[in-house]
Amino acid sequence: MLDAQIPEPAGAPEPAGAARLTARRRAVRRWSFAAPAAALAALVACSIFPAFFAGLFGHGDPRDCDLHLSAEGPAPGHPFGFDVQGCDVWANVVFGARSSIVVGLMATLIAVAIAVALGTWAGFYGGWADQVVSRLTEVFLGFPFLLGAIVVLNSVGQRSPWAVSAVLGVFGWPTMARLVRGSVRSVRGLDYVVAATTMGLSGRRIILRHVLPNALTPVLILATISIGAVIVAESSLTYLGVGLQPPAISWGLQIAAGSRHFQTAPHILIWPSLFLAVTVLAVIMIGEALRTALDPKRAA
């Protein structure tokens, strides 16, 4: 799926440097892309089939808890040990992948949707539309992301993954909107758009057929990287008690619970933290790899 997002840039016009470039890209693929892609693929698999992966070692039920095993270390069938409630840490970490990845993708999708709509509108039409969107963007950027999310989430009654995604998405679009606006503006002046305009095509058609396909690449790269940032934000908010709520199973909740017992049972904190760190690192590395592959200036 992710591979499909890296189309070879059409007509990279550098026949002389092509061999060197291809070799370089291969190296990029081998290490900085393949490794995080494999990690991420495994995590996505976990989030799609959590029951299968959780059950690899033992009963695999994250809610089958026995207080008498509270905070015990690894045991047969329970490679990561037990948390304070006596629940299997491995099963909880595997099930937690779903919340994090769902929130990461949903929030980013929402943010990209808003950013593309507003950014294209502002960039393509300019004038007062541009003024309105730019000012709106500045207002949102001036509002600290985390503070805004805390304030809004505090006033939301039930904080489901969807609500948290929506809030993170609504506060995450401004930077992307600026980027879209910028690249739409640069594309708007290109010959083929001018040609389409003189041919009398409708604005909608020009945007959908000619402008967007050529302006979206940078925002897709940024969006990939921001998935990692959103996952971190979700965990931070959950840790602070304003993100996901029990009975949701999420790494943020596990980290919050584990931090209360770090001194006596560090493994409860370490495993979900490790999974969170690997996920975020993988997503960001893939974003960087995409940028390297798609940005001709960087490749040169």
Partner: peptide, 22 residues
């Protein structure tokens, strides 16, 4: 948080009903 999650876990497991700590 911990003690209420423990109550909820025990009620859920021992009575087989859907109990959560909120």
């Amino acid at each position: 948080e911990d003690v209420f999650e423990a109550y909820a876990n025990q009620l859920r497991q021992n009575l087989e009903i859907d109990v959560t700590a909120l």
